[in-house]
Design a protein around this nucleic acid. Structure first.
Lengths: 135, 135
DNA sequence: AGATTTGCTTGCGTTTTGCAAGTGCAAATA
DNA sequence: TATTTGCACTTGCAAAACGCAAGCAAATCT
């Protein structure tokens, strides 16, 4: 794992040094909620990330232990990206982002549905979802 | 408030469009935990933000309703920055970042102490802290 | 064997960042 | 009153990052 250049000892700052940009958490989102897991899948997301940026972010996230690259069972040409435990641990954070956005933006319907579940019982949701992601 | 250019309808993406960079959440952090609230105070933070970047981020956060600018009671030369309700609502997210970082980084002692409180009872901590920030 | 899919890499123009220096106004000091 | 200091920015410029299009190699499909 490459040595991360930390701007300070602050946990917020150190976290942002890894995923504090406009794209990294969208990759995590896709792995977490959309079950997208190949390079091509990420490219298909609504935000239209550029290929070189995607490659750079995937490398960064892998170097920092948030995701891992695996061979795809179906084909040698395909690569599977998966969240590591460190990546899965971002779930509570991702949920809070969703909840914040829910207050200040209009969400698409499918996300509303997911959020409704979360609001019912956050702890239960997190536990269940983390199990699901580990599987 | 200036119109935010959203890359997609996704709540994660829309949130990142506002504060998805290396600096914005550090400003929020200072307002939230360090009680720093003037331009000069932000400059003193460990990460050493550049003056032009700070000015740009403060404007962005203000345009998006996360912070507000006020005159300082002590002097007309000073400007007070404060979190709005929208900014205060970022507290749960900031806490989750801290908790994640706590698992994967070594934290400074003062943050460890704060986190210990959080771990004891997250809900209670959030409620108390939000009240404090509103005051 | 030829075409297509997949996961990238490369080139290049544009935008953003980072650093240093400068500016304008208010307040403190001489 | 004149001058210096403090505060909140703004400006200029070089360096880095981004975004788009094109290219490329290996695997797979036809």
């Amino acid at each position: 794992m490459a040595v991360l250049k930390r701007r300070s000892e602050c946990p917020i700052s150190s976290s942002l040094d890894i995923w504090g940009d406009k794209w990294s958490l969208l990759i995590v989102r896709d792995l977490m909620f959309a079950k997208q897991c190949t390079y091509g899948d990420f490219l298909k997301s609504d935000e239209r990330i550029a290929t070189n940026i995607l490659a750079a972010r995937l490398q960064m996230l892998e170097e920092n232990g948030v995701i891992i690259k695996q061979g795809h069972p179906d084909s040698k040409a395909k690569v599977l990206y998966k969240l590591t435990e460190k990546g899965i641990d971002l779930l509570p954070l991702m949920i809070e982002i969703n909840l914040w956005a829910d207050k200040y933006f209009t969400l698409p319907l499918d996300r509303k549905a997911l959020l409704a579940e979360v609001k019912k019982d956050k702890e239960v949701f997190v536990k269940r979802k983390m199990q699901e992601l580990r599987a």
